[in-house]
């Protein structure tokens, strides 16, 4: 059976582009802090969500609505309303992270399929089975810190479908538990839906040298011929003592395209593409490539060669934790 491609859509135009490019499934969110890509100019109002779902369904694609931040005490109604509105819009599932919100959705919207967000950082079979038993979770998006053998081990011990990231910005932290963005800006993906919010990002270019700052801290300084970085702390380049280094690795993007056969063998159901903050042109290009790749694998043909590096942060790619060369 062909692996499902789950594609990002930050805007209605990107949703249509993804569907036309061959996305089996599109994920998106409402234009507020209920989803973890709460960036300026992005996301869907209620009418756009209804129209987007109708468009996707008319073309045979599914829509998942990400409501994957953690509700703020006293403001839970915003998150509850998002779940209800996703169901009303006809969403095929909601992607949730907070156990309280999962319990709410299971109790009040039992017919709405529930997926566990990567923001829940569920990284072993026991916790995944717990989410399935307690809240009826049908699919889990696995954290980007697992190797292929670890993913296979999880799939051997759970009936819950697994979805893994295969392309796009690479978060190297335990998602949902990272406070680096809060430290520098007071805002985080977990509570506000923004990692390294654009409102706290500044660029200064002087004679070809580009400084990228976050919350007043210089995170990167690159020369004229180097790719421009987005200043996230975990991908920053720092000087300590007499050494200047990236904390974990260069700011490169994940590309696990060549690992698709191994991921299929490991029991993975769906392949997720990161990038709700990217343009419709990017979405169409990446979706087209990955659809061709999964169809090739399904038909027993060789994988097409990758052509996506220039679209990536750092203009270079890595297989991240799947091969664990960076640990």
């Amino acid at each position: 059976m062909v692996m499902e491609i789950v594609c990002p859509a930050g805007t209605p135009a990107a949703l249509r582009a993804a569907v036309k490019a061959g996305a089996h499934t599109v994920y998106c969110g409402f234009a507020d802090e209920t989803n973890a890509r709460n960036f300026p100019g992005l996301n869907f109002d209620r009418a756009e969500m209804r129209e987007g779902v109708a468009f996707a369904h008319a073309h045979g694609s599914k829509v998942l609505v990400a409501i994957n931040t953690y509700p703020r005490a006293g403001s839970e109604a915003l998150w509850h309303r998002a779940v209800a509105d996703a169901e009303t819009a006809g969403a095929d599932a909601v992607i949730l992270a907070d156990p309280g919100l999962l319990a709410y959705a299971a109790r009040h919207h039992p017919g709405l399929r529930r997926h566990l967000s990567v923001q829940a950082a569920a990284a072993n079979a026991d916790i995944i089975n717990f989410y399935a038993q307690a809240f009826g979770v049908k699919r889990v998006v696995l954290p980007r810190v697992l190797s292929v053998p670890e993913i296979a081990a999880i799939n051997a011990e759970t009936e819950v479908e697994t979805e893994v990231f295969v392309f796009g910005g690479l978060c190297v932290m335990a998602e949902g538990r990272c406070s680096l963005s809060s430290y520098a800006t007071g805002r985080s993906p977990n509570m506000n839906g923004v990692c390294s919010p654009a409102s706290h990002v500044e660029y200064h270019e002087d004679q070809g040298v580009l400084d990228a700052k976050l919350g007043g801290y210089t995170i990167h300084r690159v020369g004229r011929d180097d790719p421009a970085p987005y200043p996230t702390l975990c991908k920053g380049c720092f000087t300590a003592g007499e050494k200047t280094n990236h904390l974990f690795e260069d700011p490169v993007s994940l590309n696990a395209e060549q690992l698709i056969p191994q991921l299929q063998k490991a029991g993975v159901t769906a392949l997720k593409i990161e990038g709700r903050q990217r343009s419709r042109s990017y979405v169409a290009e990446v979706v087209k490539n990955f659809r061709a790749a999964v169809d090739a694998v399904d038909a027993g043909r060789p994988l097409p060669t990758g052509m996506l590096a220039r679209l990536s942060e750092g203009q270079a790619t890595t297989t991240g934790a799947y091969k664990k060369t960076w640990r």
Binding site: L210, P227, A228, S279, S281, R310, Q315
Partner: peptide
């Protein structure tokens, strides 16, 4: 893609 143009300077 705006990000790609930005990354490539």
């Amino acid at each position: 893609d705006g990000d790609a143009l930005f990354f490539s300077r």
